[in-house]
């Protein structure tokens, strides 16, 4: 190898050594940081400014500074309050469902099975589809007149998506169907990393299946499960596409849909920026709490 390098010309020798730190900085780091500043940091700060004004993107009227008025109005709006409660309930139902289904599937797949690879790939298909496509697809499944769900369950013409009591659960079921494979994938990674000798030791000690599950499997998989729950909780709070495509039922309106309506249908740019910041603060709090407990789990 040393002989080969010494026979190369200087440029090739430099290439074989790799790029210098300055080149890497100029080619990769600076463009990435510039991109992030232009498309992430700048809009973030710009919308923070909007949240303190009465700016409307559809109007040329002069912009006035209104202080915290937008935040006060948003928090005093009963429709937004109801939407927050609906979103929390949706997150609880959806993430719990994904966790149960995803972890259950991972436990089933974490054993010798014929066609295991094919089965895993097929189970992961929903996650790879576009959320809008999934929403439209499930809208057909839920159709009260000729949808396959009512037919398969032998129900009458149940209007899943226009019934105020069912619409939210119908959207949550779709989200569970779509994102359980994500939880399954992470859980499967965690389960396959559990050392086999622990199970052997447990079986020598005549530990029961439940005892082995709660004392060996669950504690060792917990950190990775927590990561899955973090991701899914944050995503569920921001759910927009599936719910927006599937139903216009006010009882199933999520906070992102309300934000979209305020910002791009009613053109209340200032108040919608304030609402976006409230959601951001909430998501940051959730992330911090989860990361704190994730670090604690790692230390154990």
């Amino acid at each position: 190898m040393a002989n080969l390098i010494t026979t190369l010309d200087p440029a090739s020798r430099a290439a074989s050594r790799g790029w210098s730190d300055t080149t890497i900085r100029n080619v990769f780091v600076i463009p990435t940081v510039a991109f992030l500043i232009i498309f992430n940091v700048f809009p973030l700060l710009y919308s923070l400014g909007f949240s303190f004004t009465d700016f409307r993107a559809s109007s040329k009227a002069p912009v006035n500074f209104v202080g915290f008025k937008n935040y006060i109005n948003v928090l005093a709006d009963p429709v937004i309050w109801r939407t927050f409660s609906t979103t929390l309930w949706y997150v609880i139902v959806s993430v719990t469902g994904q966790f149960i289904v995803g972890f259950g599937l991972a436990l089933l797949l974490n054993r010798p099975l014929p066609f295991k690879g094919l089965l895993t790939t097929l189970l992961m298909l929903p996650m790879m589809l576009s959320p809008v496509v999934v929403g439209l697809f499930w809208k057909l499944i839920y159709d009260p007149s000729w949808g396959i769900l009512n037919y398969a369950l032998g129900l009458g013409p149940v209007a899943w998506l226009s019934d105020a009591n069912l619409a939210l659960y119908a959207v949550a079921i779709t989200d569970i169907w779509m994102w359980s494979p994500f939880v399954m994938l992470l859980s499967l990674a965690g389960l396959s990393a559990v050392p086999k000798h622990l199970y052997e030791a447990a079986s020598i000690d005549r530990a029961g299946k439940l005892y082995t599950f709660f004392r060996i499997t669950l504690p060792l998989v917990a950190p990775i499960l927590l990561i899955a729950v973090i991701f899914r909780t944050m995503e569920a709070f921001k759910t927009f596409d599936i719910a927006f495509v599937m139903t216009g039922q006010p009882a199933a309106e999520l906070i992102s849909s309300r934000l979209y309506k305020m910002a791009f249908q009613q053109w209340q740019t200032g108040p919608s920026s304030a609402l976006a910041y409230i959601i951001l603060i909430m998501v940051l709090c959730i992330t911090n709490i989860y990361v704190k407990y994730l670090n604690k789990a790692k230390e154990r």
Binding site: W81, R82, F84, S85, T87, L88, I278, M282, C285, I286
Partner: peptide, 8 residues
């Protein structure tokens, strides 16, 4: 804060 925000 999260509970206060989302409680109905």
């Amino acid at each position: 804060g999260i509970v206060f925000l989302c409680q109905p």
